[in-house]
Nucleic acid binder design. Structure first.
Length: 427
DNA sequence: TCTGGGGTCCTAGGACCC
DNA sequence: TCTGGGGTCCTAGGACCC
């Protein structure tokens, strides 16, 4: 049976989230910044039209933003995550076969709907999401994921589609559209492969579709070869409804101010370890190894550069914050070098195994009582921090000063996830 | 000028995504 | 002064084993 995929994508997602709770932002240019207020990671259409590029370091556009009265926000992941969950719940009602691909995108398998008018169906879906959440979405429909992505792109760029496009409805006009999509803009083709493909005379989505798959495999990789097939309508990338268990989990941050003191670095790394441990427990997993890395700024040419990482095995798979902090401190001591201005550090947990994988074996085994105690403690810790906010209860090693804390000067309130920050309707 | 051959496992690095 | 964070997959090459 031929497959039919839809890609639903929230338009300018972070900017749209900010807009939902501040109606005065309608029609205003908005940008949202990365952690540490470093780069531009989302823009409303108005901001795009001013030529503020995606990923640009914000300091280069600060004056323009000020001059043109751009609304600037620090990123607010509590808000975006919650809005994303609302959107996904609605999509779930429309189809059980859904892959949440990212915070603002989902693939839907519409193969069972193939005889209905998919365009009308998708328009209704988009309207429902808009009405219930305030978030505008675009929908692209095609026989493969790569083509659904392309259809979505075409829908966004052609206002007459109303943000919804079924590739099948284009008939022979598909070619003209694929010829206008640069190969760089095909899903899965990044800068490097685009350069390579262009050298081979393959510059557009249409040209990639018509390229020799074995040549593409030799010169690029099997991944790019698959994209050729996908562009031809042969589905190689399946819908992944149940996300496979994560293989690693990582917390890292650039510091608000450079870190030079050992004590500050210990505090930061302990904090990252604690946060990573929390994510690990959310995943109901344990880790068998831990990596700490740190680095100076590659943009800073006047002070010595250094970056390094150390991995320590964990004697037994664990999800205990205390144990993970201790391991992180050991790893840090192996790579710490004084007299450097550190920009960034992080903690990564590796070789994850399911929480209960070895429980039968360990029942009654030495250390099992201690482990159960740890589990209860972690449960309480997570409960409090979930209800009262991250970091309400924490380990002493995480510190109080946090001189290195990231910069977030323009964050909007957590409208939807904190009672004390609910928006107030004035009568 | 010679120094087997093949399989598996692991890791580092490069590529991509949002 | 000021340049994000968190993932995945694939491949090449080395270690190790028989």
């Amino acid at each position: 049976m031929p497959r039919v995929f839809a890609l639903v994508d929230c338009n300018n997602f972070y900017a749209s989230c900010e807009r939902v709770f501040q109606p005065r932002l309608r029609d205003r240019p908005i940008v949202v910044l990365s952690n540490n207020d470093g780069c531009v990671i989302a823009r409303s259409n108005e901001a795009k039209a001013m030529g503020i590029p995606m990923g640009a370091p914000f300091f280069r556009f600060r004056r323009l933003a000020q001059h043109r009265q751009v609304e600037v926000f620090s990123s607010n992941y509590a808000l975006y995550g919650d809005m994303s969950a609302r959107v996904m719940r609605i999509l779930q009602e429309y189809t059980p076969s859904l892959e949440v691909y990212s915070i603002d995108e989902a693939f839907l398998d519409l193969s069972g709907h193939a005889r209905r008018d998919l365009g009308a169906y998708a328009r209704e879906l988009a309207l429902t999401v808009r009405r219930s959440t305030g978030i505008p979405v675009s929908v692209g429909i095609g026989p493969t994921k790569v083509l659904a992505k392309a259809a979505n792109r075409i829908a966004k760029r052609n206002p007459e589609t109303g943000g919804v496009l079924d590739l099948a409805a284009l008939g022979p006009h598909v070619d003209a559209h694929l010829e206008r999509i640069a190969v760089r803009d095909v899903w899965g083709i990044g800068k490097r492969w685009a350069e390579k493909l262009e050298q081979l005379g393959i510059g557009t989505a249409a040209a990639l579709r018509d390229a020799d798959p074995s040549l593409v495999r030799r010169r690029c990789s099997v991944v790019v070869e698959r994209i050729v097939h996908e562009l031809r309508g042969v589905s190689c990338l399946a819908l992944e409804e149940a996300a496979p268990p994560r293989r690693q989990v990582l917390t890292s941050r650039s510091f608000g101010t450079r870190v030079e003191r050992y004590e500050d670095m210990r505090e930061a790394v302990a904090t990252f370890a604690a946060r990573t441990a929390e994510k690990l427990r959310e995943d109901r997993a344990r880790a068998q190894a831990l990596t700490v890395f740190l680095q100076t700024s590659e943009h800073d040419h006047r002070t010595p550069q250094y970056s390094n990482a150390a991995t320590v095995p964990l004697p037994r798979a664990t999800q205990d914050t205390g144990e993970l902090i201790r391991a992180a401190m050991d790893a840090l001591d192996r790579i710490w070098k004084p007299d450097h201005r550190y920009l960034k550090a992080g903690v990564m947990l590796l070789d994850l195994v399911p929480e209960d994988a070895d429980q039968a074996v360990l029942f009654g085994a030495p250390g099992e009582a201690k482990r159960r105690e740890s589990r209860r403690l972690m449960h309480v810790l997570d409960g409090v921090n979930r209800d009262q906010g991250t970091g309400t209860v924490r380990y002493a090693a995480e510190g109080l000063r946090k001189a290195w804390r990231m910069k977030q000067e323009r964050r909007s309130p957590a409208y939807t996830t904190r009672w004390d920050q609910l928006p107030v309707a004035k009568g």
